[in-house]
């Protein structure tokens, strides 16, 4: 199995209100197709680590490589372009754009990428919505959906560009157990059937236990 993400010696400080080392020399390799959960107590640095791995946070020391590309030291614009193609995001809240339909929301990252024609993108978006059981809601405005449905649309959006890694920050944190299970099952299916790499930060022990690999953090370090 190939390594899709490689983080070496990631160290990060917070400066406000006073200097504080939040990540301490973190080494992490993630294999392609792995379903990895990042767990730990509040303030242990797991979210911070995920945002460093997501390329959105560039204020760190160390070296980050995703899909064979060295990302440390790249400009914000280059990183934005990289995220567009290689990383999909699911957050605690769905963050769908309220003025657009479900289909449009799913299409936006692909329109931004511009590799396909609008018709091809629409076709693929419908496909992704099918995968998540949301195809019949494609023409609805996002605020007409339930919380669980919105989160599934957000997952479809994260998958539209066939990213190398799907990153989740508490992806089930705002859902009831029924919807949490649905989201987990989707993630499970994505990794086993579609070989999708997933890195998810979670508080949910049940969720973490059922993933391929649990990385526990404490005090800015990964516990062995």
């Amino acid at each position: 199995m190939s390594t899709v993400l490689q983080a070496q010696g990631i160290t990060k400080y917070f400066y406000d209100p006073e200097k504080f080392q939040v990540l301490k020399n973190i080494e992490l390799n993630v294999e392609r197709g792995q379903f990895l959960s990042l767990v730990g107590k509040s303030g242990c640095g797991k979210s911070t680590l995920m945002y460093v791995l997501s390329t959105m946070d560039t204020d760190y020391e160390g070296r980050l490589q995703i899909a064979g590309e060295l990302l440390t030291g790249k400009s914000q614009n280059e990183l934005a372009k990289f995220r567009n193609r290689h990383i999909g995001f699911v957050f605690q809240f769905h963050y769908l754009l309220p003025e657009f339909t479900v289909l449009q929301n799913v299409m936006i990252p692909a329109l931004k990428l511009g590799d396909l024609t609008t018709a091809e993108i629409e076709h693929r978006a419908i496909e992704k919505l099918h995968l998540l059981g949301m195809a019949e809601h494609a023409r609805k405005k996002t605020n007409k959906l339930s919380g669980g449905q919105q989160q599934r649309v957000a997952i479809a959006r994260a998958l539209i560009n066939n990213p190398d890694i799907l990153m989740g920050d508490e992806p089930t944190g705002n859902l009831d157990s029924h919807n949490s299970n649905i989201v987990f099952d989707i993630f499970r299916e994505l990794t086993t059937v579609h070989k999708q790499t997933i890195i998810a930060v979670t508080h949910d022990e049940e969720f973490a236990r059922r993933t391929d690999r649990v990385v526990e953090m404490s005090d800015g370090k990964i516990l062995a």
Binding site: M56, P98, R157
Partner: peptide, 16 residues
């Protein structure tokens, strides 16, 4: 704010 944040996460550059 939220829309802007998610757009940027999804790969919209500052100039977009």
């Amino acid at each position: 704010m939220k829309d802007i944040a998610i757009l940027k996460a999804m790969g919209f550059a500052g100039k977009d």
